[in-house]
Amino acid sequence: MINKTDNLNNNNNQNVPNHIAIIMDGNGRWANQRNIPRSLGHRAGVEALKNIVKKSADIGIKYLTLFAFSTENWNRPEKEVSALMKLLKEFLKKESIRLHKNGVKITVIGDITLFSDELINQITKVEEMTKMNKKLTLSIALNYGGRNEITRAVKKIIENNYKVEDIDEHIINQNLDTKGIPDPDLLIRTSGEYRLSNFLLWQCAYTEFWFTDILWPDFTPMDLENAIKGYQNRERRFGSVK
């Protein structure tokens, strides 16, 4: 058990999650509380994100997956969606250079075919630029939905003419967006909601969940450490008896 936040950087403590997934919820509510446009809440959320990515790399987390834009988010007001797309382009163009220099590999999961050619090209460019980096794999879920991902995986399996008797969990894993990425050890959701909201439905079969009322723009590296401490105090049995 770890009692002091400083100890998270101690090499003697090996129980830091290998993979953390985060549902970054609460940007809009954060903005509403301050009577400012929701777009400024999303921008504040990006600032929080930068700090969390840096902290994750510093304490040895190898995989970080962030729910940035869901298949359902298209239903939001057009003005808000446009602001989100603009913010995403800015992040990929500017922040990816700094992340690349710090050894962060960037991948995108989700169905990006609905995005503009400009955004698709930017995603492809960033993935290619960072593909050899090893310090941290940052997966950004864009136009992502767990059910959509599983549906697309089934279609790939059918298109590849797998024999029914050969289809198993491994084959399904190989056809998901997260191919090559281990399942999350810990999932964090901010803003006081207690649901997955169609995020990583297959991958979270044995993931530990940590919920907080903190709105995403207010989520700090200290809060990340508290979530990890909560994870470290749990016993993971994966269906067995210990």
Results as ranks from 00 to 15, higher is better:
residue 189 R to V: 02
residue 183 D to H: 09
residue 175 N to C: 05
residue 157 I to G: 10
residue 205 A to M: 06
residue 201 L to I: 15
residue 208 E to L: 03
residue 163 K to G: 10
residue 222 M to G: 00
residue 209 F to T: 01
residue 213 D to K: 13
residue 187 L to F: 05
residue 162 Y to D: 13
residue 190 T to S: 12
residue 159 E to R: 11
residue 170 H to E: 13
residue 157 I to W: 07
residue 194 Y to L: 15
residue 214 I to Y: 04
residue 226 N to P: 00
residue 199 F to S: 09
residue 226 N to I: 04
residue 215 L to M: 14
residue 191 S to V: 10
residue 218 D to G: 01
residue 213 D to L: 03
residue 213 D to I: 00
residue 204 C to R: 00
residue 192 G to S: 11
residue 169 E to K: 13
residue 183 D to A: 13
residue 214 I to G: 04
residue 225 E to M: 12
residue 191 S to P: 06
residue 187 L to E: 10
residue 198 N to W: 12
residue 206 Y to K: 04
residue 160 N to L: 12
residue 220 T to N: 06
residue 169 E to A: 09
residue 198 N to C: 11
residue 168 D to I: 02
residue 219 F to D: 03
residue 200 L to D: 08
residue 218 D to S: 14
residue 201 L to C: 10
residue 202 W to G: 07
residue 188 I to D: 07
residue 169 E to W: 00
residue 212 T to A: 09
residue 184 P to T: 04
residue 174 Q to L: 10
residue 215 L to S: 01
residue 159 E to S: 14
residue 201 L to K: 01
residue 172 I to Q: 03
residue 174 Q to R: 10
residue 170 H to W: 00
residue 224 L to W: 02
residue 178 T to H: 03
residue 171 I to S: 03
residue 200 L to N: 04
residue 225 E to C: 09
residue 195 R to Y: 13
residue 188 I to G: 04
residue 207 T to S: 10
residue 208 E to G: 00
residue 180 G to M: 12
residue 173 N to V: 05
residue 205 A to F: 02
residue 218 D to R: 01
residue 160 N to V: 01
residue 164 V to N: 10
residue 184 P to K: 01
residue 209 F to H: 00
residue 177 D to H: 03
residue 162 Y to G: 11
residue 205 A to K: 09
residue 210 W to R: 00
residue 192 G to Y: 13
residue 210 W to P: 00
residue 188 I to C: 10
residue 164 V to K: 14
residue 204 C to L: 15
residue 205 A to P: 00
residue 192 G to P: 10
residue 173 N to F: 00
residue 180 G to L: 09
residue 208 E to K: 03
residue 170 H to F: 05
residue 218 D to N: 15
residue 173 N to E: 15
residue 197 S to D: 14
residue 223 D to W: 01
residue 168 D to L: 06
residue 160 N to A: 13
residue 166 D to W: 02
residue 172 I to P: 01
residue 179 K to Q: 14
residue 185 D to R: 04
residue 167 I to W: 01
residue 169 E to H: 04
residue 205 A to Y: 00
residue 201 L to A: 09
residue 167 I to E: 08
residue 165 E to Y: 05
residue 202 W to V: 12
residue 180 G to H: 08
residue 164 V to A: 15
residue 211 F to G: 01
residue 175 N to D: 08
residue 203 Q to N: 13
residue 168 D to S: 13
residue 165 E to Q: 14
residue 210 W to F: 15
residue 185 D to A: 05
residue 219 F to E: 07
residue 219 F to G: 02
residue 192 G to V: 11
residue 174 Q to N: 15
residue 195 R to M: 11
residue 166 D to Q: 14
residue 212 T to P: 06
residue 220 T to R: 12
residue 158 I to M: 14
residue 194 Y to W: 07
residue 195 R to F: 11
